[in-house]
Design a protein around this nucleic acid. Structure first.
Lengths: 262, 262
DNA sequence: ACTTGACCTTGACCCTGCGTCAGGGTTTCA
DNA sequence: TGAAACCCTGACGCAGGGTCAAGGTCAAGT
């Protein structure tokens, strides 16, 4: 007859764990000797090993309890389930390995050089510090989520700055960012924006079509939503501007989309 | 500026988790708006993603706290460490998959047919139910731990029964199992055992030598110790018998070994 | 016979990483 | 003018035990 510590060390668990399994009803309380010590037989050892085998595989103790009393079929079904979970966890850890590797590379923490170049150019063009900081915050978010898409985005932004009309509109937008929410000039800004969108529309749609297989230029909805929220919070006229754009057939901001062909 | 739920959903965590990170000092408390609501900027989102990336990789939050404030080298060293742990966990799950697969096969729960045959033969040879049950318990333990070695063990046990001298000694041992601890006849039994060991020694040692690469016939120390403990607990003369055997140059019982060449 | 050290007993609190109320106040949309 | 959907703090709950505390017991050596 075994004492609790002999039993425990045989199964490679602590004495505390064995008592825990008693308290949980997983392992039946064995008989006691005259001094009240628990005395175990070989079956207890076998049961304990079953418990540990299941628990080590990540099965919650409550589930282990059920399984020990389950029928053959239930048991094999459950085991198949556990095996699926283990495989999923293995894949999960493999993904985590990749994620922390990227984190360690440090690229996602700071901004990539293209973004730094873009922000520098904004400063040279004498945009306000406030605007540049807003842009920086936004691109930090994007870079943290989609580091691999940054070169593409930055190329697009640089092209915007290359075009004098777009650049002027951008300057006007920055000025408009400090207007009150109900400023009457917003409508005019909306009109100019729509005109620019319409002009760009063809080339833009071609671009969308090209990047079919993998969302080349388009941003995941979550991220776009977040950037929109930042825009809405920082710029008083943002809400009304988006509403006016929607009246004119365009929805969204970060992920702009046409909702009515004109 | 983001509300707590916007921030949380961006990073794919719950609002409660974000507050938890504040309470733990992982994420600095942001400023509040006039109604006391937390308002976050883009950096908070980046920090939160870093926290989740580490936490998802299984880093305890206390450790995450340190790492966020760590130097470049410390951080990369820690990441290497985490990566090692992840690889180890992947290997662990792979082992667990094998273990539960064996459990599901059911072979390790009951006794394999060889063992059943062996126990049946013991009963036919009119060994007492008590002795047969003791044997059964012991072999259940072995089968649970080393199912693949069972055929070998059972073959050895059957060979013992084939030899009339060994069989007779076994019968005498069973009778001796009910003696008092201080029975004077124990010494004679020890002598007979040693004589048998010496006779078998050559062939036995050859056998040991054969199974060099993988412990063919020899049992892991843990298991042997457990079986010895069962023997010592069940049989009053066991302690003294082992002492006498040791005087005569043999130590142990389940894993018998010569400690003095005669 | 006595001590020492290793075991055994129950009971109770501690830990992580949040989930989940409870019991409020605020903002937003219709 | 609600009702729904947010937000706040504070507190308790969960698994799966670890870790005292405050004893009782057993085996060994002296």
């Amino acid at each position: 007859m075994l004492t609790i510590s002999q039993l425990a060390s045989f199964a490679g668990v602590t004495v505390r764990a064995v008592r825990h399994y008693h308290a949980k009803g997983l392992l039946p309380e064995p008989k006691r000797d005259r001094s009240g010590y628990r005395r175990y037989d070989a079956f207890a050892a076998v049961e304990l090993i079953k418990i540990r085998t299941l628990a080590d595989a990540g099965v919650p103790l409550a589930r282990v309890h059920e399984l020990l009393a389950a029928s053959e079929e239930e048991f094999t079904a459950a085991v198949a389930d556990i095996d699926r979970r283990l495989r999923a966890e293995i894949r999960e850890r493999q993904r985590h390995r990749e994620r922390i590797a990227r984190l360690a590379a440090g690229d996602s923490l700071a901004l990539p050089p293209e973004a730094v170049a873009y922000l520098d150019r904004l400063r040279k063009l004498e945009f306000s510090d406030l605007m540049v900081e807003g842009e920086r915050d936004a691109w930090i978010l994007v870079a943290a989520q989609l580091p691999e898409h940054m070169p593409l985005y930055m190329k697009a932004k640089q092209q915007q700055l290359d075009d004098p009309a777009t650049l002027q509109l951008l300057r006007d937008l920055v000025a408009a960012a400090s207007w009150e929410a109900d400023d009457p000039r917003v409508a005019a800004v909306a009109d100019r924006l729509v005109a620019l969108f319409e002009a760009d529309a063809e080339g833009w749609e071609d671009h969308q079509a090209e990047g079919r297989g993998e969302h080349q230029g388009v941003m995941p909805a979550e991220l776009a939503q977040l950037l929109d929220a930042v825009f809405l919070d920082l710029v008083p006229i943002a809400r009304r501007l988006l509403d006016l754009l929607e009246e004119r057939g365009w929805r969204g901001w970060t992920n702009l989309e046409r909702i009515r062909p004109t």
